[in-house]
Amino acid sequence: MITYKKDVAVLGERCPVELAEELFAWLVGKPTRKIDASACQDMHTAVLQVLLLCRPKLIKMPQSPLLQQALSGLIDA
């Protein structure tokens, strides 16, 4: 479940594969939009891939260290 605010998408606890498409549609071509992943505990690979493709700014990282590592490619840039 993802809640879309004005320019921040708040990722829910679980982000299953179906959400990849809508997240991509929301992010694509809008480089200012950001992600709040603090609540996310379980992210499907397809959702992760969308984030890697669109490279939005992550305003809050997930709690899980492993998820943080999965997203670390987004921070270095």
């Binding site: 694509v28 690979t45 992760l48 891939q49 969308v50 890697l52 493709l53 669109c54 260290p65 590592q69």
Partner: peptide, 24 residues
Amino acid sequence: LGIATRLAHKVKVDAELDVYQANI
């Protein structure tokens, strides 16, 4: 112990892209 991820290959990111083609 830990993980890392990256895109498997560079693609043009536009609305036409099929996000369900794994590229990771």
